[in-house]
């Protein structure tokens, strides 16, 4: 599974992209986030307030309840500020 982090999430976590293999019982993004929070302080800080974070699964906006599977691309980022 490919994970991407943008803007301040990338800065807190320390990398912009990584490949991970979460345990098979993790079935949705919410479970993935909980698992990631256990990987270190940077992750815990980045995911402290889930209301301030947007996410996409395979490059489409999704919610925390979105199912995930091996091979997915999951991205986490703050609300967008383009234009």
């Amino acid at each position: 599974m490919k994970l991407l982090y943008f803007a301040w999430l990338r800065q807190k976590i320390g990398v912009g992209e990584e490949a991970v293999e979460p345990p098979p019982e993790i079935a949705d993004v919410r479970g993935l986030v909980e698992w990631l929070k256990g990987r270190g302080d940077g992750y815990a800080q980045a995911f402290r307030d889930l209301d301030s974070i947007k996410l996409a699964v395979n490059q489409e906006y999704a919610g925390l309840d979105h199912p995930i599977k091996a091979g997915d691309e999951v991205a986490f980022f703050p609300p967008v500020t383009g234009g």
Partner: peptide
């Protein structure tokens, strides 16, 4: 287009 772009296109400014 500009209104939707601002809230949907994944860009971030620092």
């Amino acid at each position: 287009l500009i209104d939707w772009l601002k809230t949907k296109a994944p860009f971030w400014k620092v």
